[in-house]
């Protein structure tokens, strides 16, 4: 069905309680934008029976415009998104979290941004007076991500986005990297815009998360730092770290060596262990960087990091085979 104006992919977490209200409000907004849209609910496993029932009821009420996808593997949000994109009928896509976050009016602004030439537009939540602790965390998180990626966004992990199908299809997503889709898409040359959006009145920003979540986010930032700057220069990072360690360790060993020549016994000097350890770490980091370069070199044949917008040539083209 090629005449679908746009597809809305909604990730529905297991703890969702208000799917019916959510859909009613969303559909009202979408109907203002077009008649021929579809909403695909991606039910995150393990979906509670209440959530499944609510989603199914929505499908029953409007089978032409509501679709419900069930998944088996918990935690694979990137895979769910990819499955949704693959089966979506529209070429213009929206992604939304299955709970109230941004005022739905922003969807029109996101679509307008795409009509003006952007490839991906996402809503940046302006929290106002709501959720002080959550806002502080978000600001801190976005600042750290900006430092790591050298690209300043105010709300990079916002799930309220509009994007062209090509963005979702060309940007490799795995693990939790769907959160950082704007950063990854921009690396591929897609034009990304951030649109400020009012927070939905019923939004309940969570102030405290599990400690494990903070750990995962910190690791994400480290991954983004590497992906943004060093995926084509692994030895620059690993070699730099390795050289620093090895130089420090070498200096320690040199000092200890000179002291030994001047008569200080070596056998009971723990600093000798420190020097050896640093040299060891340095060489290890360096060798890992070399291994990275080797992998990159041998896989460069499959890498074409550039993206072509268009090729202009006369007809017939010169030197046509």
């Amino acid at each position: 069905m090629k005449d679908t104006a746009f597809s809305v992919l909604v990730s529905v977490p297991p703890e969702t309680e208000e799917l019916l209200t959510f859909h009613a409000e969303l559909a009202t907004e979408l109907e203002r934008m077009a008649e021929n849209f579809e909403v695909i609910y991606l039910l995150e496993p393990p979906a509670r029976s209440e959530v499944s029932e609510q989603a199914h009821a929505l499908y029953e009420a409007d089978p032409g415009r509501v679709r419900v996808f069930h998944f088996a593997q918990p935690g694979d949000r990137a895979g769910m998104l990819a499955a949704g994109v693959e089966r979506a009928r529209g070429d213009l896509l929206f992604t939304l979290p299955g709970r109230f976050v941004c005022d739905f009016a922003v969807l029109r602004e996101l679509r307008a941004a795409l009509e003006d030439g952007a490839d991906l537009a996402f809503a940046s939540r302006t929290r106002g007076k709501v959720g002080g602790a959550a806002r502080l965390q978000s600001e801190l998180f976005n600042r750290v991500v900006s430092l790591a990626s050298a690209r300043r966004f105010n709300d990079v992990a916002s799930e309220t986005r509009a994007l062209r199908r090509s963005v979702a299809e060309e940007t490799p997503l795995y693990g939790d990297f769907h959160r950082y889709l704007p950063l990854l898409a921009e690396r591929l040359g897609f034009r990304v815009e951030e649109i400020p959006a009012r927070q939905h009145p019923d939004a309940h920003p969570q102030a405290v998360h599990s400690p494990l979540l903070y750990l995962w986010r910190a690791i994400d930032v480290l991954s983004i730092f590497f992906i943004s700057r060093f995926t084509r220069h692994p030895l620059r990072l690993f070699g730099g770290v390795g050289a620093s360690f090895a130089a420090l360790g070498g200096a320690i060993l040199a000092v200890v060596g000179v002291q030994r020549l001047l008569g200080t016994p070596l056998g009971d000097r723990p600093v000798l262990v420190l020097g050896t350890l640093l040299v060891g770490l340095g060489v290890q980091a360096f060798t890992i960087g070399l291994l990275g370069e080797l992998i990159l070199f041998f896989h460069a044949r499959n890498l074409r990091d550039y993206r072509i917008t268009a090729v202009y040539e006369s007809s017939p083209p010169p030197l046509e085979p």
């Binding site: 040359g189 550039y306 993206r307 268009a310 202009y312 006369s314 010169p318």
Partner: peptide
């Protein structure tokens, strides 16, 4: 230039790579 130079092929990249 394509109009006057038939030997020309122009490739436009999406951004500065």
């Amino acid at each position: 230039l394509l109009e006057s130079v038939p030997e020309l092929v122009v490739i436009a990249l999406r951004r500065n790579f």
